Simulated assay, not measured.
Amino acid sequence: MTSHFERFRAGDTSAFDALVAEYTGPAFAAAVQVLRDPALAEEAVQEAFVRIWRRGLQYDPTRGNERSWILAIARNAAIDLLRKRARLHERSIDNAPSVYAMQDPDDTWQAVLASLTGERIRNALGALPAEQQDVIVRAYYQGQRPADIARETGLPEGTIRSRLRLALTRLRQTLSPMREALEP
């Protein structure tokens, strides 16, 4: 019996609906595993099936079965969506809001304080070892979770969490004199 996918690849576009029905559940599960958000996973699955529609003829049965190929496309669509969202939420350290938010935009003292605070934070961050700087920037300025950082860097999640803890402890120690001086 010919699969829906084989029929679709042979030019039977009506078989695509059956293909979608057959693989939506597994593709959704693969996307949720990457994204951890059902709404985003639905978006990734939709994108995956658009890719399958466009690239169905690129499938090479000698390199694996159709199920693996389809689920790889779904997983890749989810990863692409995750990266896209990370880029949208990526913030520069220079543009990060000051801990001491300005009350009045015309207040020169507040502007100077915010500038000095930002500079001191950048200096304190720059004094950290490179691996600690990396996890702080990824976690706090790019919004990545330790599990995502671990997956991207290939390091154990426990190592990422340890680096975050060490970096935050060092930053707290470095910045505490400034904080104490600014408290009323």
Rank of each mutant, 00 (worst) to 15 (best):
Ser3Leu: 03
Phe5Lys: 00
Ala10Thr: 05
Gly11Lys: 04
Phe16Gln: 05
Val20Pro: 00
Pro26Trp: 13
Ala27Lys: 01
Phe28Arg: 05
Phe28Gln: 07
Gln33Arg: 15
Asp37Ile: 06
Glu43Ala: 15
Glu43Leu: 09
Val45Met: 02
Phe49Asp: 02
Val50Ile: 15
Arg51Met: 11
Ile52Val: 15
Trp53Pro: 04
Arg55Asp: 14
Gly56Met: 07
Tyr59Gly: 01
Ser68Thr: 15
Ser68Asp: 09
Leu71Val: 14
Ala72Gly: 12
Arg75Pro: 02
Arg75Asn: 10
Asn76Ile: 04
Ala77Met: 03
Leu82His: 12
Leu82Gln: 15
Leu82Gly: 03
Leu82Arg: 14
Arg85Gly: 05
Arg85Tyr: 08
Ala86Thr: 15
Ala86Glu: 14
Ala86Ser: 11
Ala86Gln: 14
Ala86Lys: 09
Arg87Asn: 10
Glu90Tyr: 06
Ile93Tyr: 05
Ile93Cys: 12
Asn95Leu: 14
Asn95Ile: 03
Asn95Asp: 15
Pro97Glu: 11
Tyr100Pro: 00
Tyr100His: 08
Ala101Gly: 06
Met102Tyr: 02
Gln103Asp: 11
Asp104Lys: 02
Asp106Asn: 12
Thr108Ile: 14
Ala111Met: 08
Leu113Glu: 14
Asn123Gln: 15
Asn123Gly: 13
Leu125Pro: 00
Leu125His: 01
Gly126Tyr: 06
Gly126Ala: 15
Ala127Pro: 04
Ala127His: 10
Leu128Ser: 02
Leu128Phe: 07
Ala130Phe: 07
Gln133Trp: 08
Gln133Arg: 15
Val135Tyr: 01
Ala139Asp: 05
Gly143Ser: 08
Ala147Leu: 11
Ile149Gln: 01
Ala150Tyr: 01
Pro156Glu: 07
Ile160Met: 03
Ile160Gln: 01
Leu164Thr: 00
Ala167Phe: 00
Leu168Gln: 11
Leu171Ala: 09
Leu171Gly: 05
Leu175Asp: 08
Pro177Asp: 12
Met178Phe: 14
Arg179Ala: 13
Glu180Thr: 12
Ala181Asp: 13
Ala181Gln: 14
Leu182Ala: 14
